[in-house]
Design a protein around this nucleic acid. Sequence first.
DNA 1: TTTCCCGGCCTTTTT
DNA 2: GGCCGGGAAA
Length: 734
Amino acid sequence: MDDVTAILDQMNPAQREAVSAPQGNMLVLAGAGSGKTRVLVHRIAWLMQAEGLSPYAVLAVTFTNKAAREMRTRLEALLGISLRHVWVGTFHSIAHRLLRTHWQDARLPQHFQIIDSDDQLRLIKRLLKDYNIDDERYPPRQVQSFISGCKEEGLRPHQVDAHGDAYLSQMVELYERYQLTCERGGLVDFGELLLRSLELLRDNPALLAHYQERFGHVLVDEFQDTNTLQYAWLKLLTGMRTPMTVVGDDDQSIYGWRGARIENIRRFENEFPDTKLVRLEQNYRSTSVILDAANALIRYNADRMGKELWTAGDHGEQISVYGGFNDLDEARYIVDTIRERVAEGFNRREIAILYRSNAQSRVIEETLIRQGVPYRIYGGQRFYERLEIKNALAYLRLLLNRDDDASLERVINVPARGIGTRTVETLRNRARQTGESLWQSLHDATSDGSLRGRAVTSLKAFADLIEQLDNEAAGLSLHEIIDRVNERTGLVEHHRNEKGEKGQARVENLEELVTAAKAFTQGEAFEGVEAGEGMAALEAFLAEAALNAGDHEADEFEDCVQLMTLHSAKGLEFPVVFMAGVEEGLFPHKMSMEEPGRLEEERRLCYVGMTRAMKKLYLTHAELRRLHGKETFQRPSRFLREIPENFMEEVRLRGQISRPVTTSRPSPGLQQNGVEGGADLPSLSLGQRVSHPIFGEGVILNAEGEGERARVQVSFEGEGDKWLVLGFAKLTPL
DNA sequence: TTTCCCGGCCTTTTT
DNA sequence: GGCCGGGAAA
C-alpha cells in the first residue's frame, strides 16, 4: 500500500483533499492553472489503488478528444500499466460506443453514420428547398441551431410547445422532417448521439441497470461546459447513486452560446446528495500581478461560486498596455515586442497572440510575415472538414450505405459529370413522393423512362461507378479502397486540373487521406475497434473522421509564435501572452454587450485570456481599426478600466511619433481613399504597399496633410519607419 | 450546365 | 477584406 501515498506526493492540501476524498459526490472548483488535470488523474489512481475500484468500473468523461487522450496518457504513466479498456472519452464518443453496441435497442440501423454540422446544414438547406420554404424567413443556420438547441435540451419535435406561434410551429415541423430524413438515411448528428443514447438507457431499464451496476465511479471534466442534455444523461446513468467527481470552473464558462449551462455546476451541488465541495485556488502558472489583475476583473461578475487565485511565486512584471493609433500600429507594436523578447531569449513557441475574432488575425499575420517571424495559427479549417476530403468521405459513405441521400447529393455531380440541378431535382421529387431514397429513385427513374437522354446515361454511369467500386473493395484493404475511390471517381483528376496552387494542395490532401487510413489500420487509433480489413475498417474510419475531425497538430515542433482566438486558448498556457483588440465592440463584442449575462461571459473570456499568461501579459488596443473594410473609431475596452491601474503600465510610443491630424478628425478623404495626392500624385491609403527607389518596399502606416504637402509614414522592410512628403518622395503603389 | 461576377454579410467552436 | 450565395452570361 506504499504506492498509495505516492499518489499524494507533491500535492497541496486542497489537491490532496480532492484526490483522497472517500467515495461520494464531489465538486472540485478548479481555478485556472491549479493542477486540475493532475487532480483528476490522481483521483482515478487513488480510487483504484486505495479504494479498490476496478479499472472497468471507471467512467471518465471530457469534452474534447485531446483532453481524453491526455487524461489516458497521464494515467497510464502514473500507474505504469495500459488502460485501453478503461472508459475514458468524450460525451460523444461514449454515446457513440453505447449506440454501436446496442444499435437494435436504440432503434438504429447497424451501420448508421455520423454526420457533422456541415452535413447537417446541407441537409437542412435541401429540406427547405424540397418543401418550398422561404429561406429568408427560415435561414438554414437558424433552423440548424433550433434543431440542435432542441436536442441539447433533450426535446423531440412533439415535446416542443410552439404556443400556437406560426414561426415556431414551422420550425418544429422542419425539425420533424429533418429527423425523418436522418432516420431514412441512417444518419445521426452530434446532438442525436447524446439524445439517442439517453433514450436508449431511459427506455431499457435492464440496460440502464447494467451500466449503473458496472460503473463504480463517474468523473467529469469541465463541468461548467455541460448542457442540459449532458447533465440529464449523467443523472440518468448514475441514478444519482453512483458517486461522481466533477471538476469545473464557473469563471471559465465561455460556451453558453452553444448550449453550455453554467448553472449546472450549482445544480450539481444542490441536486446530487451529500456533495463535497473542494476549491483549488493555488495557481502554479502565473505571476501574482497577473492573478491579482484577473481576480479583480472577474469580481465584476455577479453570482459566482467564489474563488480567488493566489500564488506562492513571484510578483512579476506589470501588465503592459499599448494603445496603437490604428490596427497596423497595434500589430507592429506586437511584432516588434515579440522580436525583442525573442532576442532576450524567449522561444517563439512560448509566445501567444490571442484575439476575440478570427478576422483580427490577418493584419497581425501580415506584419509577422513582413518581419519574417514564423507563426502558426491554431484552429482554422480542420483536415476532415476540407471540401475535397468531405467529397471523398461522401463517396466512401455511399459504398457503405446507398441510401445516404446527403452523401449522394454531395457527390453525384462532383466532379462534373453532366448531372445538373434539374436532374437531381427530378430525383428528389420522386424520392419525396415514393418515400424512397435518392439512390432508389435514381434506379427507378432511369429504368421506367421518366428521364431521358443524357441524364439517364450519366446517372447510370454514376450508379455503375459506385457499384463497381463496391465490388472491387471486397478484396482490398482500407487505404487501397480510398486510393481507388480517389482515382476512379475522378476526384484527383478534378483537382489536378484546378488552376492555381489550391488544386495541388487538394490533391495532396487526398493523398494524405490515404496515408491517414493506412495509419488508422496499422495503429490502434482508438479504443474498442478492431481495425480489420476493408469495409469493416471503413465504417470505423468514417466514425473516427466524424468524431475526431480536429486532429491536426502537424508542425507542432517548429518554433513558431502561436496565434489563436481566446476561445481556443482555453486550457493552454504561454510564458508571454498578447491580447489584441481590447476594445469596446470587439471585446466585449458588440453582439454580447446588451445582455448582462452575455457581457459576463465576455468578461470570463477575458479572464480566461489573462490567466493563460505565465510571466508577462500585454493588452493592446487601437484607436482606429479597419473592420469589415471600414475604418472605425474604437474606444478602449471597459475591461481595461476594470483592472486596477496599479497592475498595469502604459507603454509610451517609441520614437516620438507625432499623432497625425487625420486620426483625430473624421476625414472623409482618409476614410475612403486615404491621401488624395492631387492630379499627378499617386492616390494612397493606409496599409497600402508602396515601393520607394531607395528604401525599397514598405507599407503605409499613417498619413497627414493634403495635396503636395501631404506626408505619409511608411514602414520599410529593414529600414524602419519613415515620414515622407508625397510631393518629393517617388512612391509607387504596388 | 457551368462559370463568373456582384452584392450582402460578417463572433466565438467542439463533437 | 473575404466568403458565400444567387443570378446572369457563355
